[in-house]
């Protein structure tokens, strides 16, 4: 109980520092450890580029999920939307439709699927968890039905460009990821829409009484999540140069995990886009590093789970200190 005020001040500032930067420091530490163990492989330019390319699709999807999670909602259906859109786009192209038009239809479909989530949840009053659990099941069912459960091959050559092409030294998928991040950043921090999202997440009733159309905003947020899920799904399809009816399913948990990890970074307990990017990178680096070390994928999953718990725990400890 008895403590000098000075000590206390220092402690508080350390707490605040850890809260803001702890996750980033953890990430850098992770990089350092992997680099130290395998200096020949891990930090090489090729491997780093590899990591970024691997996480590009996840970070596109997770950016969209960030928007939904700011209002306190949740989106379990992004993986299913990504898969469904991948399949539909692929089948349209195979049926002879132009690549661009197919992509456009795919994006529209995914956005509509997201808006349907919003309709059920914001206007229908279902909880986001239950609502998107139901649509997730339905959307993946649709993907399996349309594709008859098989992988779609034989896509047009010009479709490779999105997932495999590059502009100078920058892969197109990474450019799309950067544009997505920037777009979401601007949306969240520089627009009235973003302000309203955060306000709803903090206190929905007060937001409503301040003249915010809370239902409409939540509805749109789900649409945005659907749009980026479908964009991620299309880029993934191009990267794999084939569409599988369950290709997107890892997005569901990984995107949520990335947003949760991101909530421990930069801002206290609030979803934010740079935090999400950091979360995605942590997961990417973990996967890649553990692969290089030859650790089996099942064990990797366990470790990823542990890391998430540790990160959230550490940041909440730092919070208590204050």
């Amino acid at each position: 109980m008895k403590q000098t005020a000075l000590d206390n001040d220092k402690e508080k500032r350390t707490g605040a520092f850890i809260r803001t930067w702890g996750t980033l420091i953890g990430f850098l530490l992770l990089m350092t450890i992997f680099s130290a163990i395998r200096p020949d492989v891990f930090p090489s330019g090729r491997n780093l580029k590899n990591i970024i390319e691997q996480v590009a699709t996840l970070s596109i999807v997770a950016s969209g999920v960030t928007v939904v999670m700011i209002t306190g909602d949740f989106d379990l259906s992004v993986g299913a939307i990504a898969s469904l859109v991948g399949i539909v786009t692929a089948l349209l192209m195979k049926a002879g439709m132009g690549t661009f038009a197919s992509i456009l239809i795919g994006l529209t479909l995914g956005t509509s699927a997201g808006l349907l989530n919003g309709l059920i949840i914001a206007y229908g009053g279902l909880s986001a968890f239950v609502g998107t659990l139901a649509t997730m099941t339905a959307y993946s069912g649709a993907a399996l039905l349309i594709s008859k459960g098989t992988t779609v091959f034989g896509l047009p050559e010009n479709f490779r460009f999105l997932g495999q092409g590059s502009l100078g030294f920058l892969p197109i998928s990474v450019i799309i990821m950067l544009l997505t991040l920037l777009g979401i950043y601007i949306l969240l921090e520089q627009t009235t829409f973003g302000r309203r999202l955060y306000a709803i997440g903090g206190n929905e009733e007060a937001s409503f009484l301040s003249g915010i159309r809370t239902k409409q905003i939540r509805f749109i947020a789900f649409g945005i999540s659907g749009f980026f899920a479908s964009l991620g799904g299309i880029v993934l399809t191009s990267r794999l140069y084939s569409a599988h009816p369950q290709a997107g399913s890892p997005f569901m948990l990984n995107a949520a995990a990335a947003v949760f990890l991101g909530m421990t970074a930069f801002r206290e307990g609030e979803a934010n886009v740079w935090g999400t990017l950091l979360g995605v990178l942590i997961m990417g680096v973990m996967g890649n590093g553990l692969n290089i070390l030859g650790i089996n994928t099942y064990a990797q999953s366990i470790l990823t789970g542990v890391i998430i718990v540790l990160a959230v725990l550490l940041s909440s400890l730092a919070k208590k200190k204050a």
Binding site: T191, T192, R195, A199, A206, S207, G211
Partner: peptide, 29 residues
Amino acid sequence: RKQGLVMSRSIFENISMMSLADLSHGGLL
């Protein structure tokens, strides 16, 4: 607490919350 304020947001954001339309241009703050 229940109806007037978003406790987890800044004073700026709370004061401007009702007037965002006036304090922005084309949706940009």
